[in-house]
Design a protein around this nucleic acid. Structure first.
Lengths: 204, 204
DNA sequence: TGCTTTCCATACCGATCGATATAGTGAGTT
DNA sequence: AACTCACTATATCGATCGGTATGGAAAGCA
């Protein structure tokens, strides 16, 4: 079997649109509307392509969403991986909170979090999408739990805090903040929220 | 104009179903699916009535949702009003967190929060629903801010915490916890989350 | 130039969406 | 018993959903 990662010799008429650019446009629509709320009409209009082009290039709506989710994690959630490398648990939390906050400052991106938006409300048919998003989040949470377990072992956390509980707690603060961002709470207020969260962060 | 709160003399054939009972069934569907994810077919099947009966009794889907939202706030969010009357800010937080946690223990109700679910993902047509839910939540948040301002005035909070920031922070913890509940996190883990949140709660 | 291949545009598919028109039925009033 | 009115059941409305069939246009290769 030959490699089909890059077609060796592109035969036929080449694509007239930039697949990555169009995917970014689709991501914005999903981000704004959620998986089910994003109709093919709105998607294709935002992407500047027709329906047959969309299906030829991305498969169907569901696989388009998964590709958009990949792009989202890769571009917008890059700060997460970096945050886990911070030297102390407190700095991990600070980087995660500020990373999420900074993302909300963008004027070109929608508010909130694509994952949260797409994992909650869904009709009966979108259960597999919901499951996918939840599975991806689970791996992030597992990494955070491990990081805090390491912090505990390094004496970086007070003895009475449970690493797993702390990880879920921090995840809740971030997700709750993103819910509020979706609801239109201003960045200034979100910033005060983050400041409060850091103020109460447990220290030895 | 006569009072139409209660029809003085009900003429014609009386309704064969219990409007309140059917509304409770509709609430469960909205809670599980969100506003847009709940189809009329699924609603009427759960309610045990036909479409014309639904429209005659509740108006349309949107007004049915608002009535369900009323019922939800009245029945499921009753603990919120009570929590605000707790003597200290810490106890207010504790009652709110535990109230939300206890709600997730129900085996008959869906997980998560109807408000959060319905305020996030939505197509273009459900914007008015989203606005409605957000407006209702705003009044709750305002009450919480006032409560914490009172706490500050009573010397019930450390001087360095901002009441509004603390209120938004607590709201985020609760909403984030409900997001996780919707995602299937177990009550045991949610309980650890709440314990952690109470552990870090600022004390004088 | 001729051929292949994939592109784009239009129109359309069955299914489902929220919402109603129509007709028949039945309980309460007179 | 006759009448009235709102109920129920069925069938259907136009619009939109995700997804495609069809046909002409255009780029690359021989």
């Amino acid at each position: 079997m030959e490699s089909n990662v890059t077609a060796a010799v592109p035969r036929g008429r080449p694509r007239e649109f930039d697949a990555q650019e169009a995917l970014a446009a689709a991501l914005r629509v999903f981000w704004l509307r959620g998986y089910e709320g994003a109709s093919l009409t709105e998607l294709t209009e935002a992407m500047g392509i027709t329906r047959p082009s969309l299906y030829a290039c991305y498969g169907n709506k569901e696989s388009l969403f998964r590709k958009a989710l990949d792009l989202y994690e890769q571009e917008k959630l890059a700060y997460m991986g970096a945050a886990l490398n911070a030297p102390t648990a407190r700095e991990v939390a600070e980087r995660l909170l500020h990373g999420a906050l900074e993302m909300q400052r963008s004027t070109s991106d929608p508010r909130g979090c694509l994952g949260v938006i797409s994992s909650l409300a869904c009709g009966a048919e979108a259960e597999s999408i919901k499951a996918e998003v939840i599975a991806r989040r689970a791996s992030s949470e597992a990494a955070l739990i491990q990081r805090f377990e390491r912090a505990r072992d390094e004496g970086d956390l007070p003895d009475h805090v449970d690493p797993a509980g702390l990880a879920r707690y921090l995840g809740a603060v971030i997700q709750g903040m993103l819910v509020q961002a979706s609801s239109g709470v201003s960045c200034k207020d979100l910033s005060k929220l983050v400041d409060t969260a850091m103020m109460v962060w447990p220290s030895r």
